[in-house]
């Protein structure tokens, strides 16, 4: 079959909502875009464990500690699902880790912000995981089969993350004056970075049009961001807290919330490596990988030894 015919067949499958599977023919750019998006997503899950890991030993009770551990373990699992999905496109795990550790591959810029107080664990669960879920639910319908299956599995597990986050803030919002202030402070610091999680505006997002045509993306960054704002603007009322945006207002014509302009300079700064914790996060990742090297080697050596034909023992 010639290239043109293959490309036509491919697009036809996409249009008919038939998933693309690893061994099917696909345009090189489709493969590349998926590798980029899925591996960045995987890196985000893995780096995302770090801001929360910061609070495991300082969680206020054994219950909270157990919950936080379970949540972080989920994120390691989500990273694995996604790395496996990316591997089906022909990139190796080692290559992906290499790209992360050298800074060639990006991860969600949200994880370059510090988690300063216990209330941040609540805000991260509610806002950061909340934004992730909005993104991920729609990605369950993405055209690449292994990515879609990974997303379905992740979404099943993710809802506990958002609920436990909201519950942390809910408890604080019912507490002392100081606890209430801590709750509001965490919301103030995490709100804008959460909005940035949806990426650049549609007219400044160069990959969006092609990704939509290939159904790698189903909705645009701005559509998803709006959906998130509408959801959170209602939920924050339950907490008796506010969002740090004087322009946030229900628009009776559009039937959506209007909201203020995101600080895009800050966004690009963090994406380009100059956020508050970029260095710290990457160093922690590299250290963990290096410190674990002897375990990987020992396991390989043990497996190789066991596989050797047994010599006769008298």
């Amino acid at each position: 079959m010639d290239l043109e015919k293959l490309a036509t067949n491919f697009q036809q499958k996409i249009n008919e909502e038939i998933k693309i599977e690893p061994k099917d023919w696909m345009p090189d750019a489709y493969r590349k875009t998926n590798i980029r998006q899925i591996s960045q997503h995987a890196h985000s899950e893995i780096v995302g464990m770090l801001p929360e890991g910061n609070w495991i030993t300082r969680a206020p009770s054994l219950k909270r500690k157990a919950i936080l551990l379970a949540k972080i373990q989920d994120e390691a699992g989500h990273g694995l699902y996604l790395y496996s999905a990316a591997e089906t496109l022909g990139i190796s795990r080692e290559e992906m880790l290499e790209q992360l550790h050298t800074g060639k591959a990006k991860y969600s810029s949200i994880f370059n912000y510090p988690s300063l107080t216990w209330a941040d664990m609540g805000a991260i669960g509610w806002l950061v995981d909340g934004a992730a879920i909005v993104n991920q639910i729609i990605l369950c319908r993405t055209s690449y089969g292994p990515y879609s299956r990974a997303m379905i599995r992740i979404c099943k597990e993710e809802s506990f993350h958002q609920r436990q986050g909201f519950e942390i803030l809910w408890v604080l919002s019912q507490g002392t004056k100081e606890q209430k202030a801590m709750c509001q402070d965490a919301i103030n610091r995490w709100w804008w970075p959460s909005l940035m999680m949806f990426g650049p505006k549609d007219d400044e997002s160069p990959n969006t049009a092609q990704s939509l045509a290939w159904k790698i993306k189903i909705k645009t960054n701005d559509e998803l961001r709006q959906q998130f704002v509408d959801m959170i603007a209602e939920q924050v009322k339950v907490l008796g807290m506010t969002l740090p945006d004087p322009n946030l207002k229900w628009n009776t014509k559009k039937l959506h919330y209007d909201f203020g302009e995101i600080n895009w300079q800050e966004f690009w700064n963090v994406v380009n490596g100059n956020g508050p914790c970029n260095k710290q996060r990457l160093n922690a990742r590299i250290k963990a990988h290096k410190d674990g090297a002897w375990v990987r080697e020992a396991a390989s050596a043990y497996a190789a030894k066991k596989n050797q034909p047994q010599s006769k023992v008298a």
């Binding site: 690893p22 496996s84 591997e87 089906t88 496109l89 022909g90 190796s92 292994p146 390989s300």
Partner: peptide
Amino acid sequence: LIKKYFYGDYGEIEEGGSNTSQENQW
């Protein structure tokens, strides 16, 4: 074709065994 082992992409590569370029990978 991509000459690597990855899930869902089997049967094209005859030699079996681990991928030589990734000896260290489990």
